[in-house]
Design a protein around this nucleic acid. Structure first.
Lengths: 159, 159
DNA sequence: TATTGTTATACTCTATAACTATA
DNA sequence: TATAGTTATAGAGTATAACAATA
């Protein structure tokens, strides 16, 4: 429609058309913004979202098999191997091969891992509040509910 | 591989705690699911979300400067350079250096680019319908509205 | 044979800095 | 000096395939 040839860009008014109604496009932009919030909040610390999430879930499920962790968090096994290796090298996670099934690896937090989790827990939870800037409590709750329906399609605990 | 969504083994009950209320976590899972939908829909075609989005916006804004495109779509300039190079090599996009500012690059679709966009337009729009499986029309509209508030934050800070 | 995890390779996206050529 | 774009490098995340050890 409006094709500026030689005219200087007015104010970067770019037509996006149906893109503004694209769930994938909006999810990407929203996630970029939320990630910016996360990294800004944890600036100066070694905390990264994927790693901290893994520590969080291991804490809540001590001894969880690595493969189960990968499936639940939808992290590919090959990636999970390297992620866990980093956490083990950092002294935060301990691996244990159970006698019952020596193929598997069960994960627990070390004391340093527990301390790391506790040290950043309040900040981690505060990010959830910062992320939703501009949304009312009701809007935030509804957004989480709708995203939950997309993220966990088989679970339907809302009668 | 064949099923649109893989049913998680019901025996793997893993406690996620506050993670289920984490906007970043839910955004990531929702985006993974939407991307799976996209790639399943475009299986067998060369269409990729980032590239098709760029073609889409160039079509709506012929002659758009590459840097403007990068800022609007929140794609880093270094990445945009390589993305556009691929599209130029594929014969879908033409670059033009305007005499008015020979530093900049203005982008337009070639005829092949137009044809490519048209050929996949219906499928691209159909993904938007498929993405929201499980949501009612009202829920989908509300989700898009709330994500839009996150994705396009108004410049009105609330002190 | 199937499963669990590992290694290896490759590709996308991101982050950063240094560089050019313009302005 | 500042801007637009490029090149280069590094890293994270993802997708595959092949593999070893175990079941």
């Amino acid at each position: 429609m409006n094709a500026p040839f030689d005219a200087p860009a007015p104010a970067e008014a770019v037509e996006l058309g149906a893109l503004t109604g694209s769930l994938g496009f909006l999810l990407r932009l929203a996630q970029l913004r939320v990630y910016d919030q996360f990294f800004a909040t944890f600036a100066g610390t070694p905390v990264k979202p994927g790693e901290y999430t893994v520590l969080w879930v291991i804490h809540l499920n001590p001894g969880v098999p690595q493969g189960t962790l990968a499936r639940v968090l939808e992290i590919k096994p090959a990636h999970m191997t390297k992620l866990v290796q980093r956490l083990v090298e950092a002294g935060l996670v301990a691996r244990e091969v159970p006698a019952a099934d020596r193929r598997s690896v069960h994960l627990t937090l070390t004391e340093a891992g527990q301390a790391h989790l506790e040290r950043h827990r309040a900040t981690f939870l505060s990010v959830h509040a910062a992320e939703r800037v501009g949304l009312t409590d009701a809007e935030n709750a509804e957004l989480l509910r709708l995203l939950g329906k997309l993220a966990f399609p088989t679970e339907a605990p809302c009668p």
